[in-house]
Design a protein around this nucleic acid. Structure first.
Lengths: 234, 234
DNA sequence: TTTTAATGTGTATTTTTAACACATTATTGC
DNA sequence: GCAATAATGTGTTAAAAATACACATTAAAA
């Protein structure tokens, strides 16, 4: 490792001291199942937080980009490749990790749970309803809250929730995702109206199957027609 | 330094390897002067970017919180104490710093330039109009752009621009700040209407002095009456 | 005293958001 | 097969917010 000469005016501390901070990445991986927003968590096995849920994370390797690190964690854990990933915040309190100084950069991700059931053989891994999580290891509850808030802002004007759904979905399912994320009820007519106006959907001229009621039309996300001007979901 | 046992499953790399990433903080310090948005920059003296402007930054010390590090930089450089500071993004490309692996967390800050002219004796430090900066050392132009975009979003519904102004200001000055930040013209009547509706201002019943035209009324920021529901500035 | 250049104010129009009800369709149970 | 059920699908109206726009007032400067 070369000298960090840009900071050489700080003579009172040697470079060696500065490399005593570890950098990690934690991923808040959101999924949607049974009408609920869920998050992928794992049982913590360090003694201070034994048995509590924690987020998926790992240390950043010296030779990988920060974004690549989050991508690697996601891919290793879920087997998914083409996922939505967004950096949210970096948490850097001195004592946030009992084992030493670890600063963590957090990302949230949106995946379709059904797409990677296979990988969940690891029974320490678990999809947990976000609403029911009150406590987590480390500062992970705080991280989860921060990412959830970011997600709520994001879906207001960016077409990202499609990542939580299968390729083909009904408007009912789409609305259900919004309601789960925002934790509120939405007016069906206004909801549909807005989505048709925004041009985010393609009508597949197919109907739902195996639903215990009148089947709804199926749509897919229209990736080619991102509306420049976007509107809030009411 | 203790073992980072949470990550101990990663047997293929020793802990030592992980501590070869340095963590820095860079501050995008915005000011407002002569009707322009400015940013505090410093001449870069590492050979790869000799003479180019760079942001104010420093390595994070092992025993200080991440937020404290940004605060320290700001205080050391500007002498200001009670300033607005917000974390924006962490940049972590492997080769972003020529001297080695440095991941940087960036903050933007809003200060009133007039409040700390004294400290600017250091002539490597310089308030530069944001609009005129096309190139910077490292990835700092990218960082500046990211922070500017965040600032633009922020001022839409949060009362933060007051930090760029003196305690007492006219509506003209306030509008001028918005126009400088958003880089657009605003309708004076609508602008005033909205601010009065938002209840962010206190009328001081004083008039501007030493202006070469009819003096406007002076206001101060109403810190006690944060409106819950905020509106976009048009 | 006149000119200049800013401050200060109100209304009408358009756009967006929010509230709201009934007919239609496929499934389920009798 | 038929009735009951539970969802889908659709338009209008009212309220709120955003936008466009013009003229009288005031103090300084000429």
């Amino acid at each position: 490792m070369k000298q960090i000469s840009r900071f050489s005016h700080l003579g009172e501390l040697s470079d060696k001291d500065y490399f005593r901070i570890a950098l990690s990445v934690d991923c808040v991986i959101f999924g949607f199942e049974d009408g609920e927003l869920k998050v992928l968590v794992i049982k913590c096995n360090i003694k201070e937080y034994k048995g509590m849920w924690s987020l998926l994370g790992d240390l950043v390797r010296p030779d990988e980009d920060l974004d690549s690190a989050s991508y690697r964690i996601l891919k290793d854990r879920t087997g998914l490749d083409d996922v939505y990933l967004e950096q949210v915040h970096t948490f850097g309190k001195v004592n946030r990790h009992p084992a030493g100084r670890v600063i963590t950069t957090t990302y949230f991700s949106l995946v379709n749970i059904k797409d990677h059931q296979l990988k969940l053989s690891d029974n320490e891994l678990h999809w947990h309803p976000v609403k029911e999580i009150t406590e987590m290891a480390f500062d992970h509850k705080n991280i989860l809250d921060t990412c959830l808030e970011r997600l709520r802002e994001k879906i207001q004007d960016h077409p990202v929730v499609f990542n939580l759904l299968p390729k083909k979905f009904s408007l009912r399912e789409l609305q259900s995702v919004y309601e789960a994320v925002l934790n509120c009820e939405l007016d069906r007519r206004n909801f549909r109206k807005k989505f048709f106006m925004m041009d985010w959907l393609v009508d597949l001229n197919e109907l739902e199957e195996d639903v215990p009621h009148r089947p709804g039309k199926l749509y897919k996300f229209n990736s080619s027609k991102f509306a420049k001007k976007v509107k809030k979901i009411s």
